[in-house]
Design a binder for these strands. Sequence first.
DNA 1: GAGCACTGC
Length: 647
Amino acid sequence: MADFDLGASFIPALYKPAALLPIAKHREALLYLIETSPVTIVVGQTGSGKSTQIPQFLEQAGWCADGKIIGVTQPRRVAATTVAMRVAEEVGCEVGKEALVDPLLSRYSVVMVDEAHERSISSDILLGLLKKVRRKRPELRIIISSATLQAEDFRDFFSESNEEAPRDDKDAAKVASIISLEGRTYPIDILYLEQPAEDYLEKAVSTVFDIHANEPKGDILVFLTGRDEIEKAVQAVAERSAQLPPGSDSLLPLPMYAGLSTEQQNYIFEETTENFRKVIFSTNISEASVTIDGIVYVVDSGFVKLRAYNPQTGIESLTATPVSKASAAQRSGRAGRTKPGKCYRLYTDEAYQALPDANVPEIQRSNLAPFVLQLKALGIDNVLRFDFITPPPAELMVRALELLYSLGALDEYSKLTKPLGLRMAELAVEPMMSKTLLSAPSFGCLSEILTIAAMTSVGGTIWIQHDGEKKKTESAKRKFSTEEGDHLTLLNVYQAFVTNGRKEARFCHENMLNFKAMSRAVSIRAQLKRSLERFGVVVDESLASGSTSSTAAGSASINKAEQIRRCLTSGYFAHAARMQPDGSFKNVSGTTVLHAHPSSIMFNRKADWVIFHEVMETGDKTYIRDITKVEKNWLLEYAPDFYKTST
DNA sequence: GAGCACTGC
């Protein structure tokens, strides 16, 4: 496998992006377009300064007069808060307000949808809303930032009308215009494999060594699909580095994925000494969310893990999928930020040609229940006729409506119920959990459910997953575990954190907890609590017990534990399963075999009926996560209609 | 025996 000869395995492509003018040069043209055209589509590279500079141009041009504000939305909140803060600092405008409170967005003179080409559900829905608002508020200005390939989709969307007669081309041009604001980039050589790789992980590692042996200085960024692959690749490079010829520069392999702690992530930004070449093995996090300086070489496996949702079974899956052409372009662009670069694609030119232009929009492959609820709360009753830029499959809509009806958020006419449905829409957790929260006062366990809701929404990032320290994490977890399952375990972890570890980094370190994730749970809990108090719900924290584990003495806490399990059942009855003699589970209709996820307390433990927070198919198994034991008769008690129809 | 990314104020 020692094919160090790059020329033999890669062939160059013809494509070279042109180096164009920076954004400030386009200022006048841009402001003229925004003034004269209701919708302006701004095309330019990620990081070209669009999201910070355009709001400033607008403010200077008087778009903030009369107390009006400029809104900037982004699919990735980390970036959004940074941008919003910078804009607020620099131009003195307030940014960010929910459409839920002000459906006509009347305080805004301009709304900018940033990175709209990423097609997140929220930006897709915002585009549909903006199109609707524009009919009632023709003076509103809409700016959409997009990658080049998708610009025309947005123009066509805003130019076409659902209700009126088709416009001619001249009219369409008046509604939406496209302007290109390419930033300065350096040329990137793109190289393809001559033959498909049998094992892209092995090929990625050998390509890294090829680059190291044959190419001038510059760090390497390798795109892989997940943690497992990344850790394997890092290890392979570390091992094989020993065989590098004496006197040659060293390779410094580093992992990058969202599950790492901040500290571990920060290694990739540190400067290396003269004789080192950094090689970063990363998930898609480095495609757009994280920018690393000094990258000259990109190695693209051609794969990404993508979520999908099966509307028939209601099961999400996470599988490695070939990237889109748009993704491949974005990845290669990471090489040319500071000087000319090279991108090695671990697939053939033919394989590239066969890739889809763009990813399937999120709205066509997700559980839509949370978004249907939001649309209903915005007064959009006929969600099936909402003007989506690409409509989701009807089955996805139907499944979302059915779930919301079974939870009592919608009535038999599919209208939002009040107050239940409306309140559920305003809580920032998914519908099954918002239902659980809203029924918690009647079970006398609101404080505990608030905590559980916050803990489940930060997901699997609570525990440190350091390679080689798995045992340590397992034993730390056992200290908090309860007989009843994962939800009560999460409650114990949280309670220990707020009493012992909130200001003490050592507590998290000793218990293998991720401080950032735990702090996020604290702030989510506070936010949920504020929402509930806005509805007039009283949250009595004095009732919260120190420990709700069944190992704790006293019948009061055992009773509390049962109330919590009953309450969870009232929201999660649709996520019920029964353990089979072989230890696996079957869902209510008996159609799907489910397995307790190895991270669950219920992994390898006995149970009868359980409810679970989440179900996901990865590889060839379907896993349930965050599992709690319940009684069969509770299911019948809290969801009689649901169980009558499904059995 | 194991989860891509993102957010929630």
